[in-house]
Design a protein around this nucleic acid. Structure first.
Lengths: 185, 185
DNA sequence: CCGAACTTTCAATACTTACTGAAAGTTATG
DNA sequence: CATAACTTTCAGTAAGTATTGAAAGTTCGG
């Protein structure tokens, strides 16, 4: 553990002089957390996910709270959300009543989960809105109404196609699909 | 314009009895605006985009403000953002000093613009963070550090591949790419 | 079925982001 | 180059989200 000896000595706050396991993990967690906002995921959820992603062993709620300096309520809520998504699994450790948590480590599975969730939250509502408006505008008369209807139809058809492709992609096996995609694109 | 005669008579607030061009447009705009939050776009920007998407004619800032009941500052800021993205074009109308705005109507182009922007805001920062952490953790010793490094490498490689595919997809021609995708998936 | 260990909930609060409107800035035209 | 028409900026405020921490709820072992 030579690395730990030369960590962060005399450097300004927030700047790391050299890298230990802990410092790299902290950098990863903090940066990933900061990116959460861009991804529509809250900071705590992103940080918990990052921590578990690089932790080989399951962690308890208390360990997570301590590592990330967040409250119990916050840790609990976001852990449940991550478990709901399927990105984190609760595991039982023999001889301990507490819940432990591990992250799904397989990158392709993570991708499929995120793709599925985004489709559900972003694409499906859009498709529903568009189909509703297409239906409502179908019987209108006049050039302006018909132009609007035509535009709505184009949008609706595109989103429908994209949704279908998304579905197939997220259901496909990694090794079956990736080579084909590389070839086509 | 028969339709306008049977719009929204005696119905509870927010409920539309039958559809006119205006009512369908309003439904579309409001729903699209509400969805904006899910998409990481603010409500006003989404509503302006929706309005322009279904308006065959260019509109002035004032027309947009009036139609959506938003302030001048808000309209101005979000119009500029939409123009920056390339989703809306400013156009000059002869004999009028005011700026007029039209939306890009081609669905495939809209998709490419959104894909490019999302890649820039979501994928590229992730790739950068991951590459940085991979580099930092590469020289660490010990089983735990090596497990973390390996996980970071898997994430980094995946995001790199996804980024490359995204690029090619957004640069491809619609008619060249869609049939191939349908076949592969 | 009691008490201890642990988990969940939720009202209060802190933080973040979006919006307004008025004032400052810019540009076209007589 | 003065004025009027239009656009941009920005400080203040409103609206929306995330987080805390303490209280209530649950479960397990004895």
């Amino acid at each position: 553990m030579l690395q730990m000896e030369r960590e962060n000595r005399g450097a300004p706050a927030g700047v790391v002089a050299a890298d230990s396991l802990e410092s790299v993990r902290d950098i990863f967690i903090r940066q990933w957390g900061a990116m959460g906002s861009q991804w529509g995921v809250n900071r705590s959820m992103a940080m918990i996910h990052a921590l578990l992603l690089v932790s080989p062993e399951p962690l308890t709620t208390d360990a997570i709270m301590a590592e990330l300096a967040i409250s119990r309520g916050n840790a609990n809520t976001n852990l449940r959300e991550l478990v709901d998504w399927g990105l984190v699994y609760p595991v039982l450790v023999k001889g301990d009543r507490r819940d432990y948590f591990v992250a799904e480590k397989d990158v392709w599975r993570i991708f499929c989960i995120v793709a599925r969730e985004r489709k559900r939250r972003e694409m499906e509502p859009a498709q529903k809105v568009l189909e509703d408006c297409v239906r409502r505008s179908g019987s209108l008369e006049g050039a302006e109404a018909e132009a609007m209807h035509a535009q709505l139809v184009r949008l609706s058809e595109f989103v429908g196609t994209a949704n279908g492709l998304m579905d197939k992609l997220a259901r496909a096996e990694r090794d079956r699909i990736l080579p084909n995609l590389m070839r086509v694109l």
